[in-house]
Design a binder for these strands. Structure first.
Lengths: 202, 202, 202, 202
DNA sequence: CATGAATGAGCGTTCATTCAT
DNA sequence: CATGAATGAACGCTCATTCAT
């Protein structure tokens, strides 16, 4: 997806991981535009020339970072959502996992939102496709376990809401984290979801 | 809040409005970093030198724009929320108003999220304070009208959720607007909120 | 023809002359590719930023230089060739003038040949058009004064040959200037031309 | 003349031919400066590391190409000019051969003129020596066959003129090839030369 | 107050060359 | 001999900011 002039693909793997790690930490700190390619190379531990052996343009680095973030999420979430006949408890536990993951990836989530516009159109649509896929899995799960019959749109709204309520802990932390601990936040949001699904507590 | 070398405060008002209008439309289109100060001055109809008579740095323009966006929102929302003893219907109608406003200000909302990091720390906290104030108003309203007794934290979660569900229509439009019309979106989200508030429909 | 962000057109004139002079001397010395934009600005006496207020790209400088060289040539040659009914002596004297001019502009001529490929296609054709016009004037003059009736093609060959014999003193100086003084060169080339035109000497 | 770290001289021969062929076609297409050493190696069919086993610097490649071009010319022309007592017809036929050769090597001729400056001084003088030698052969031939007694300088001028009239078809093709076919060009130039040599046609 | 020419630090990117394997 | 990953100086160009007029 991202071109390299280097042939050894194992090495590409290694170097790109270095690039991703260094770029991610820099992007988190100062954003994409204020991070220079030289900084990325320095933090990664090699020269600017070497950086450009593994990417074609700065935008490629952003895409590599996005790709890596989504891979982390899907690697963790997809297996959980594979369950054939999930119970309500399963779903709530999956949602809880998702919230935990979003908690651990707060800064990555912020980055996702902030720099989406900096991705070249073509890469952006790849990224968004991955996101839609994840939401669709939520939608299906919700339909399956909801005690009342939900239309696809109703389930979609709920899935979208859960999806961004998870991310909200990250991108609105300056507001939320003044009022809630993460455990409280999770507890309340789960209660909220149960209520939405007409699930009687207790 | 933003310094100017010009003394005539009526003129400052006029010029800053020009700056805000031109900057807003440019920021929406290409983002803060890809907009140049020259472009802002050009679109505003004066020279780059004049621009710098009314701001000290490019970041000031961003702050002016943010300020103006928040003022629009509060000018519209605060009067609605002033009601002494609101009914549930009042609250739902206020939420609906809020959703409509967020619909009309989609691009501004996206900007808010994308460029928050570009604001100097000091201005950022001013902006966030305004936001917290709005959410607090939602929280109070919710507590007042909820048919069941809600703790402050429970109400806060609901207020925050409503708040971002409104914005979500804008900053996730590429996903949502494939599945929903705005009317559908509003209908489902209101139903969702009613459910959360334990309000039996009909 | 070449865009500038500066509005004051008198100033553009002045600055461009500075650019042309400094670029010309650098291009003569080291060629277009080995001359940096910073060097051009330095020699011209201003900063790199200022240079780019008067051109859009490095190629523009090359075009400005070409334009200026051709203007020198045409400013000098066109008036001479305006004569209504030239005699043979007039033509030989014009050719001599042309040879002298090419002698004085040796390095410019070399530059013309060496960097033509570096001009963007569009500018190149403008330059070549100017050259064809000059040759056409030679052709017409030759037809008018030749003692024998020449076809247009015959005259064209002669005009082209004269044209490059003039330039040859410059771009083949390392060879010619070992064998000839400029006066000898001119004498012999003029004799050569007379012979071609079937003009009996003496 | 050009150093190599490789000892096996047969291999040097083979590799250098590959280098010359690939570089020549690239230089014709995009010029010396816009061709990268990597491209040369790629087209030649080996790695950049291998390229540098057979040259010391990029300029060496240019010299190898120049050398090869001159060798082609001399290999073809020298035998023709070896004739002991040439007649006028012989000379005209040799000149015609030369014109044909220059026609076939148009792009090489352009390259010669355009990149001469890119050759390091030392190599440049070697190249120019070869050229002078060829012209000297023309001079001698002309003196031998001219019906009138020519001084050495007179003959030199004629030789130089013939020399560049041949090359002119290449480096001024955008002008000439609009007006002449190659056959016309050759016919007229030969007629021109005959006239110069005081040779009555027919 | 308004102007806009001048500045130069700093950016993304390239590419000739080296050298360990 | 052959490879190709690594290097970093150097390039063309941009743009926020200043300040004399």
């Amino acid at each position: 997806m991202v071109e390299s002039t280097v042939k050894n693909s194992a090495l590409i793997q290694v170097r790109r991981d270095q690039i991703i790690q260094s770029a991610l930490s820099l992007f988190k700190e100062k954003g994409f535009h204020k991070t220079t390619t030289r900084e990325i190379a320095n933090v990664a531990g090699f020269s600017i020339g070497t950086l450009y052996e593994y990417i074609r343009a700065k935008e490629d680095v952003l895409y590599l970072v996005y790709e890596s973030i989504y891979e982390q999420v899907t690697t963790h979430m997809y297996p959980l959502m594979d369950e054939k006949n999930p119970t309500i408890e399963d779903v709530l536990s999956i949602v809880e996992s998702y919230f935990h993951m979003m908690h651990d990836m707060q800064e990555e989530v912020v980055l996702l939102y902030q720099e989406m516009k900096s991705l070249p159109e073509e890469k952006r649509s790849i990224v968004l496709k991955k996101e839609r896929k994840l939401i669709r899995l939520f939608t299906h799960m919700i339909i399956e376990v909801a005690p009342i019959k939900l239309t696809s749109l109703e389930a979609d709204i709920i899935a979208n809401n859960i999806f961004i309520q998870g991310q909200m802990w990250g991108f609105r932390r300056w507001a939320l984290q003044k009022q809630f601990t993460f455990d409280e936040y999770i507890t309340y949001q789960l209660a909220y979801i149960k209520r939405v699904l007409h699930i009687t507590e207790g």
